[in-house]
Design a protein around this nucleic acid. Sequence first.
DNA 1: GGCCACCCATACCTGCTGGGTATGTTTCCA
DNA 2: TGGAAACATACCCAGCAGGTATGGGTGGCC
Lengths: 281, 281
Amino acid sequence: METRELRYFVAVAEELHFSRAAARLGIAQPPLSRAISRLERRLGGPLLERNSRGVTLTDAGRVLLAEARAALDAVDAAERRTRRATGDGAEPALVLVSKAGASTELLTKLLDAYAAEPGSVKVEVDLCGIGEQGPRLRDGRADIALLHLPFDSVDGLDSEDLLTEGQVAVLPSSHPWVTRPQLRLADLEDIPSLPPMRWPSAGGGFPDGPGPEIRDLAQLYQLIGLGRAYTILPESARAEQQHGVATVPVLDAPEVTTVIAWPQHSRSLALATLVQTATRL
Amino acid sequence: METRELRYFVAVAEELHFSRAAARLGIAQPPLSRAISRLERRLGGPLLERNSRGVTLTDAGRVLLAEARAALDAVDAAERRTRRATGDGAEPALVLVSKAGASTELLTKLLDAYAAEPGSVKVEVDLCGIGEQGPRLRDGRADIALLHLPFDSVDGLDSEDLLTEGQVAVLPSSHPWVTRPQLRLADLEDIPSLPPMRWPSAGGGFPDGPGPEIRDLAQLYQLIGLGRAYTILPESARAEQQHGVATVPVLDAPEVTTVIAWPQHSRSLALATLVQTATRL
DNA sequence: GGCCACCCATACCTGCTGGGTATGTTTCCA
DNA sequence: TGGAAACATACCCAGCAGGTATGGGTGGCC
């Protein structure tokens, strides 16, 4: 199977419409129909059901969609990482991805310590939205990531634990509870009349329903400062205290572990040194 | 990048010789040279260094070799799993891979329990050599595996723990210690004059050196029965006692956890049911 | 109910490119 | 210094990807 065929199939499976998929791919519809037909013939059965008003996936099609996405990510990763390694104008570099606004202190220490290591290479920092680290590692846009368990998933990655900490409630500073020395989860369940928030789900999308889509922590802080939300975050978030918000420890909140993670087949010396530096902090 | 180009590059990178690689690929040498050149041009730099007596990999080439292998595994997995899902003659089925001779009792219970579930599908059991489960999951020859921590790795996989147990020494039945009620690791270090054994390393190869290459447990049991070896195995191995060997508990051996593992992007109902059945055993 | 619009498949043509053969260039070795 | 080994280059051909035109079937709408 060629990657082109996989890209074609994914386009059709996502659009559920040959003509739209063809437009997205920048080709005409007939070659696309033909390519999918050939794919179906080679794989031994139908992947799509053509109802004259569009297209639906068969069971086999659903299998191929999931597998093809993973395979295309791997191919993209190969291309991106190789292109970065060709010394294409610049010296070799690592790309580290982390949620914007999280673990700033840890990240600063890590970058300083690594830069002081002999033989260290340049590290580009890519600050992304919530839950985007995994995809960026998988498709090669990044080499290594800071993740926060249990919120993020380390599926498919190697990782080392760096820091485990408790959590604090982040409240509007006008809230009456900000003077309390501590809270419990049960207290927080009683906070009335704040609108629900929608966090990204594993696929990167947002569940349906009311409330704002939370894409990054800056946005979340702003909502809290406006009195429209509250949340629970790791203690280290206190270091990046924003205007208009206050924090109170939550005694019985689950602990959060910050980990450094990388694709399991990575074998570069630079990456190993960075991980080693991180675990020694 | 097309799959074909990746296969070509991997062939050259493994053979370190264009003509041999071309022969392996079943094409002539010139098209292969051309394909690699184009790949290098597109990726922005050399992947190979041509020393007139062969070829060596550049740093970028080493990166691409690792990434390309992972990507090709993913593409192969897509093809195999889809082909199995096309109902190509037979009903849908899951392929479960486990080390031959390990966890027989657990496996029997699992298969019986799963078969009794409503909506369960056929399960093909693939008994493989030591350490081959990971590759088989990665390239789609299997859907789900039984692994034994800490010997096997769950890198890149989702997993659920099934059973944690101590270990026993497996000795020739003629050995004087088989009458002892228990042993310690320190005792075993003193067993004299047994030849070393070579276990497969993570890549699937064997380290250099003397001694037999251990590929599966049947072979290992036979060596022990012949008085040529001993080993330490999980307690459940007692259930498949062979002729000429005896077991003695080892009190301070590390515990072994049997886990059920599957690729992290798998989302089929049949697989989820099988995992759920396994965790309820 | 018949017409139309929509959507995918088929037919056919064309140009690009993957692959083959022949040959060149460099280097190492005898 | 001649020759062998190994990768690159030149050139040709065939197959296939992609385009246009059109067919066929189905659902909706007047």
